[in-house]
Amino acid sequence: MLKVRIIPCLDVDKGRVVKGVNFVDLVDAGDPVEQARIYDREGADELTFLDITASHEDRETIFDVVRHTAEECFMPLTVGGGVRVLDDIRKLLLAGADKAAINTAAVKRPEFVREAALKFGSQCIVVSIDAKTVGDGRHEIFTHGGRNPTGIDAVQWAKRMTEYGAGEILLTSMDRDGTKIGFNLPLTRAISDAVPIPVIASGGVGELDHLVEGVIEGHASAVLAASIFHFGTYTIGQAKAHMKAAGVPVREDPKT
């Protein structure tokens, strides 16, 4: 059977790993390729780099990070952050990424997702959705690290992105990101149940139980977390053992 994926995420700024709390107050903490190697050895099911480099000229650094990682870690690699035009995707794929995650550029111009899926195939197009639950229990899309509301309904948006050819959705609970209190489960479940494509739950993981909840209650196909793995609170192996004990099917150590 297909297993639930556990995906460590590395936030990368100018080629270095960072992790923010609610997307501000970044703390520098290491070499992304080294981190990737550790996750590969621990049996992570995929790896995600989120490039948060602000300045255009420094953005080239992510390609080197991807290139070096892909040459030694033989596992699926997704890169998001700053994906604005088709050429950004092409360069990421050529550097060795398997999937590119589109966020703000999709909100600005939804057709971009359609064009990207046609050009490169849905299998490599992830639409990244940052959403919060707003006053009346509705879920709304936010951009720019959660600062800018868009008025767009998250469930409708996820359906539309699926129609446009997204192969997967990376859903970040923006009202939970960096809080360590767990995913926004009603949001996660609403999106997972609304679309036929896989949904990765992200944002707010502080305990291993949160990963279990994302799957059992949020109906996510995969769970993504950054800081619990990055700061060594838990290993990938501990996360898998915990999920297995809770009845979630996970891939155990590769057997050959």
Partner: peptide
């Protein structure tokens, strides 16, 4: 079930073939 079929699934085989030498039933591939 979601489409695409995305992630790690377990190989099952009943025939032997040099390509599968040393591969255990249920080994995961992406």
């Amino acid at each position: 079930l979601k489409i695409p079929h995305m992630g790690w699934n377990e190989l099952m085989f009943s025939t032997s073939h040099p390509f599968l030498n040393g591969i255990v039933q249920g080994s995961h591939v992406y």
